[in-house]
Design a protein around this nucleic acid. Structure first.
Lengths: 273, 273
DNA sequence: GAGAAAATGGAATTTATGATCCATTTTATG
DNA sequence: CATAAAATGGATCATAAATTCCATTTTCTC
């Protein structure tokens, strides 16, 4: 039973939440999950708002508060309002804060990468040609099977594409070069190839593209240069320029493009055969 | 007279406050001063509390709100509450819409994802605890070998981590569950485990974490809930809140965090042995 | 599969809070 | 100093929010 002292600090609150959340029925679990993920909202929301967010009735949320040891929502809210430390400043201020941390500290780095990520997302809308994007989506949704290739730096993007395609029931194969097998003959007439490759362009990817091009398989290329080694195969090209931070590029933009492309294909595709 | 449009942003609010405060009688001036000095409290206080703080009657504070152009205290408070929580709920509904009837060109879709990506990067600065990030980086750089695990949705992140670690000469192993082999015995004393897992938490990942926890292997968890199934193993937790819409979640924020973490570890690590 | 216990949804109730109003006080002005 | 206008305090009213209660549904146990 939950008839016990209410947590007196945010730390105690978290512990209580953890302790309690092990054994909770469905609705109360939803409350716990939502509250855990939106602690910051508690101070400024009403029961009704929180309940709606969690997808439960207000009364369920009340019960949840009581299980945590509070007399009700108000008492829980009081805890959060009291320890509400001068409202969060806006994005740029927060960023500045992070950057003020010691040079090279993980927090400062995170700030830099977030910033780089945002910048590269912004430029994405400029570098990607909408017509090409539409063409790419059409081409891929018309394919029997979409073959995805991307190695090295691009491998993570390729795996993510494979994941979304599978979720959206788009027939797709991920080419991994596992064991140096390149499975080029798995690519059949009527299929399409989706290739990700960035500046130290890996040769297995190029080989696969070259082979496919020779057989007139339609190709979509996500790459960083219009005149890269892929250009001569005349693929439908989606350009991404990733903002460097130090030696590291943030793949956030590429990932974003990949997601949009995958969802376009997934929704355009008629119900699976 | 103060019958004018209410400020629509914090910036507009400040300007209005300044403009108005020149010519104000005693009590209203107290209101202005107190409000200016305690803007952060507005979101979480009642009229009565604010009035007491300013040393005036509630009715005086009401009048003050109206002079600023608001219909009353509630409307002013709404401005502060909304700018505090940011625009996340909007995205939820927008993306849900998108999923229900996917109208719109791929380019429009890309626009949506870029927006969502930017917002989720921004919120990353709120959810990740800098102290935990530092601790995670220290813990991983102290390890002999870093073991990376992440399946399903998280697999692409895991592969990216493995890529950067390798580039930075940090000894790391990617656990893929290829062939259902979980290689749990590859994790030795002195190693550390880095686990990525999000809401349909995959059981192989949990198993691996459980096993490692039982052997006192230090664990860093990148996840979406402080009370998720990983919580009971008390890992160093890095929270990323990606609102869940099946395939529509953009992992840009997680990727960004992963990159920052990897680079932190890579630079902290003393020259390779 | 029947019965009991737990959990849940939604309406009804209570409380707290915001907003309004007007008598009283203060300040400005001739 | 008298008068009018403005400002203020505090009580009252209206409303929105928190809380409780109970009928219904679900889940567990024998």
């Amino acid at each position: 039973m939950g008839d016990n002292a209410p947590p007196a600090s945010l730390k105690a609150f978290e512990e209580k939440l953890l302790e309690v959340s092990e054994s909770l029925p469905k609705r109360l679990r939803q409350c716990a999950d939502y509250v855990a993920a939106n602690k910051d909202r508690i101070a400024v929301s009403t029961v009704a708002e929180m309940a709606e967010g969690a997808g439960v009735q207000p009364s369920a949320l009340m019960r949840f508060c009581q299980i945590l040891g509070f007399s009700g929502f108000s008492e829980m809210q009081r805890l959060f309002r009291e320890s509400y430390v001068g409202g969060w400043p806006d994005y740029s201020t927060r960023l500045k804060h992070l950057r003020e941390k010691p040079e090279g500290s993980p927090a400062a780095l995170l700030g830099e990468f977030v910033d780089a990520g945002r910048a590269s997302l912004e430029s994405l809308l400029n570098t990607v040609d909408p017509a090409n994007l539409t063409e790419a989506a059409n081409l891929l949704s018309a394919a029997n099977v979409v073959h995805i290739v991307g190695l090295g730096r691009s491998f993570s993007i390729a795996t993510y594409m494979a994941y979304i395609f599978e979720k959206m029931e788009v027939p797709a194969v991920l080419h991994t070069s596992l064991g140096k097998l390149d499975n080029r003959h798995a690519i059949r007439k009527g299929d399409a190839l989706l290739a990700f490759t960035f500046s130290p362009y890996s040769s297995p990817t190029l080989d696969l593209v070259e082979n496919a091009a020779a057989r007139n398989i339609p190709i979509v290329a996500v790459t960083d240069s219009a005149i890269g080694p892929l250009a001569k195969f005349r693929p439908v090209t989606l350009l991404v320029s990733e903002v460097d931070f130090g030696a590291f590029r943030s793949p956030a933009a590429t990932l974003c493009l990949a997601t949009a492309l995958a969802v376009s294909v997934g929704t355009a595709k008629p119900g699976s055969a």
